[in-house]
Design a protein around this nucleic acid. Structure first.
Lengths: 126, 126
DNA sequence: TTAACATATCACGATATCATGATATGACAA
DNA sequence: TTGTCATATCATGATATCGTGATATGTTAA
C-alpha cells in the first residue's frame, strides 16, 4: 500500500537520531495534518460522544425525532439530566429542535452524527 | 419518512401526560437501542477522540505508520505526553504497534478509526 | 558491563465534566 | 391571573482527565 520513496534507506531505516532517515517522513506528514484550531474544535466535537447519556440520546434520535419528556421516559432519566445534555448537544451542533407549543421536538443535525455513532458501535461490537 | 401508525392520534399528538399518545413511541424506540454496557463501552471508545493530542496522533497515523519519536517530532510534543496517550490509544484498541529493535512502530487498528476521524473532520469543516 | 537511546510507567496538581437539586421561563387551560 | 406542564438554567460537590517531571525498562553498541 505504501510506496517506498527512497531505496537508499537501508539498515538505518530504524534510527531516530540527529541525522536520521525519518526526517523526511516527519516533514512530509507534518504538512498534511489539520492545524491547531481544527484539532481543538474536532476534539470538542468528539467529546460529546464520550458520555453514555448523550450517546443514548443520539441513539434514540437516530431512530426517530422525540420530545424531551419522551427521551426522559425512554431512558428513565430525570428531566434536568436530559435537558442539560440536550443543551450541550445543541451547543455542539449535534442535535437541532423545533418548538411545537410547549414541547420541543429534537432531531439529529445531519447524517454525519448518525454515521459516527454507527461506525463506533460497529467497532466495539467487532 | 416516518410512518403514521395510528390515525386516531389527532390534536392530542403533542401531549406528554399519563394517558399520552407517545407511550407507543417510547416503548418502540426503547427496544431498539443498545444496552447499558454497550453504551458504557461506546462512550469510553469515543472519549479517546475527545482530546486534541490523541486526535493529532490518529491524524498522523492515518497518513502513515510512525515510531514514537517521529510522532513527538512531528507534533512537537514531549515523549512522556505522546507515550501516555499511545498507552490510552492502545488500551482502547485504537492503535496497535509492532516492536522493531528498540523502536515501536504504531499504526491504526482498523479502518473504523480512520472513518470516524474523517467524518468528524468533514462535519466540523461543514 | 557500561552508556546511550527509545519507550513505558508512576505520581501529582490543575482543570474539566458529571448528575442532580433548586429554581426560572414560557405556553396553554381554566 | 392562576395553575400546571414541558423545558431550560444555575450552582455545587464528587469524580475523571490532562500534561508533565521523575524514574524504570529494554535494546543495541562500544
Amino acid at each position: 500500500m505504501e510506496m517506498k520513496k527512497n531505496n537508499l534507506e537501508n539498515e538505518n531505516d530504524d534510527m531516530c537520531e540527529v541525522f536520521n532517515s525519518h526526517d523526511d517522513v516527519v516533514g512530509r506528514v507534518r504538512e498534511r495534518i489539520p492545524d491547531e484550531a481544527e484539532f481543538a474544535e474536532l476534539s470538542e466535537f468528539f467529546k460529546i460522544f464520550g458520555n453514555p447519556t448523550r450517546l443514548k440520546i443520539i441513539s434514540l434520535l437516530s431512530i426517530e425525532d422525540l420530545c424531551v419528556c419522551d427521551i426522559c421516559e425512554a431512558l428513565d432519566l430525570n428531566q434536568t439530566t436530559v435537558s442539560n445534555q440536550l443543551r450541550i448537544l445543541r451547543a455542539n451542533n449535534i442535535v437541532k429542535y423545533q418548538k411545537e407549543g410547549k414541547m420541543a421536538r429534537y432531531s439529529l443535525t445531519d447524517l454525519h452524527i448518525e454515521m459516527i455513532y454507527k461506525v463506533g458501535l460497529e467497532h466495539i461490537l467487532e
